[in-house]
């Protein structure tokens, strides 16, 4: 089987657009609301979820034929928990500030619906390589939305991007004020809603 056959391409690219986990399947919303007040944690969170989804998909897919059906959730959770712990420790070691900002949400990746959903729906019945691609695709599909929301929230809520001031001081001197509501989780729900609105307006067959 070719490494990037039609089916594999679909597993990788589908979740980026027409089968996006956040805006189409509406999964993983909680963390999308919680960590997107700034762009940097949003990017790190997106990357972490991508890595964990990809490798847990890969591992579960490799051992899928040996997992007894009755305890498969426990097995999946053990694998995910191990990966989450690794990522969390790596973040603590190399990106301490971001890991403090993300606080419990790195640990809570273990309960991310996207992860369990992909394991149950894809990795349990597909070969390792397509499962790996599917994990990467879903992780990136999740990360894209996080980055869009984080971009809007940090730009309008703090006037910065990745910590650098983007809105010029001139605007503040002339009465511009940062929008405090953008830093609240309520507003990110509205932004996710707007993204879904735009996405469905563009892809009419999803409505």
């Amino acid at each position: 089987m070719a490494l990037l056959s039609k089916a594999n391409q679909e597993a990788l690219v589908g979740p980026l657009n027409l089968n996006n986990p956040v805006v189409v399947q509406v999964l993983g919303i909680c963390s999308a609301l919680a960590v997107t007040a700034q762009l940097e944690p949003a990017i790190v969170m997106g990357l972490s979820v991508t890595i964990i989804t990809a490798f847990s998909n890969l591992i579960i897919s490799i051992i899928r034929n040996t997992i007894p059906n009755r305890i498969r959730i426990i097995v999946q959770l053990v694998v995910v928990a191990a990966l989450v712990t690794i990522v969390s420790q790596v973040l603590k070691a190399f990106a301490y500030d971001v890991s403090v900002q993300l606080s419990v949400y790195v640990g809570l990746i273990i309960t991310n619906c996207i992860l369990m959903g992909r394991l149950e729906a894809f990795a349990m019945m597909n070969k390792p390589w397509p499962s790996f691609l599917d994990g990467i695709g879903n992780g990136i599909g999740y990360a894209i939305i996080l980055i869009i929301v984080g971009f809007v929230r940090e730009l309008l809520g703090a006037g910065t991007l990745l910590g650098f001031q983007v809105i010029p001081q001139w605007c503040y001197d002339h009465g511009y004020v940062n929008n405090g509501m953008m830093t609240m989780p309520a507003m990110s729900l509205i932004i996710v809603g707007c993204v879904i609105w735009a996405h469905r307006a563009y892809n009419k067959d999803l409505v």
């Binding site: 004020v177 929008n179 405090g180 509501m181 953008m182 609240m184």
Partner: peptide, 10 residues
């Protein structure tokens, strides 16, 4: 409410 939560100082 939008003004109240977005621009509390104003």
């Amino acid at each position: 409410a939008f003004l109240f939560f977005s621009y509390p100082s104003s």
